[in-house]
Amino acid sequence: QIFVKTLMGKTITLEVELSDTIDNVKAKIQDKEGIPPDQQRLIFAGKQLEDGRTLSDYNIQKESTLHLVL
């Protein structure tokens, strides 16, 4: 699992595989929060994550926290 922190300070827990693409992750956030993926920007280690890449491409591990910017 990974964590996604919103600017409102809310933390969302997502069940993911490290082979999941950023697209997949955004879809899971949409399922939980109702935010359309095209409005989501995910940040990790100061970098904006690109849709076609996977979590492992960015060296994101289990229990990592991503930041969601709208």
Rank of each mutant, 00 (worst) to 15 (best):
R53P: 12
A45F: 08
I29L: 08
Q1F: 12
I12K: 05
E50G: 11
L18P: 07
L70R: 02
E33K: 01
K47P: 02
L49N: 00
R53Q: 09
H67T: 01
F3K: 07
L49T: 13
E33H: 01
Q1D: 02
L18W: 03
L14K: 01
Q30S: 05
T54Q: 04
L68W: 01
L68S: 03
L18K: 06
G46H: 08
D38H: 04
K28H: 11
I60W: 05
E63I: 02
T54C: 08
I12M: 09
F3D: 07
D57L: 07
E33T: 02
T13M: 06
Q48I: 03
K47R: 10
L70I: 04
T21Q: 11
N24T: 05
V16K: 00
T65C: 12
V25F: 03
F3Y: 10
T54P: 06
E63T: 04
E17V: 09
K62P: 12
L7V: 15
D51I: 05
I60F: 02
E17T: 05
T54N: 09
Q48K: 01
E15H: 04
I12Y: 12
T21K: 12
K10N: 05
I2H: 00
R53V: 12
K28G: 10
S19Q: 02
D57R: 11
G9T: 03
R53A: 10
F3W: 03
M8T: 15
F44M: 13
G46W: 01
L68F: 01
K26M: 13
I60Y: 04
S19T: 10
R41H: 14
K28P: 00
E17K: 04
Q1W: 02
K26Y: 09
Q1K: 13
G52K: 02
S56I: 05
T21Y: 07
D51F: 03
Y58A: 14
T54L: 09
I22D: 00
G46K: 01
L42S: 00
V16T: 06
I43D: 15
V16M: 03
K47D: 15
D38V: 04
D23L: 04
I60T: 07
Q1P: 00
I60Q: 04
F44N: 12
K28T: 11
I12Q: 10
K26T: 12
I2P: 00
V4D: 00
I22F: 03
L7N: 15
D23E: 03
L42M: 13
T6C: 05
Q48S: 02
F44E: 07
L14S: 01
K47E: 15
K26S: 08
V4R: 00
K5F: 14
I60M: 05
N59I: 12
E17I: 05
D31M: 08
S64G: 12
G34H: 11
R41G: 06
T54G: 09
Q61W: 10
S56E: 12
L18C: 03
F3C: 06
A45I: 14
I12D: 03
T11Y: 06
M8K: 09
K5T: 13
V25S: 01
Q39R: 15
Q39D: 07
Q39I: 13
V4Y: 08
E17A: 07
E17G: 05
E33I: 02
V16A: 08
R53H: 06
T13L: 12
Q40D: 03
L55N: 00
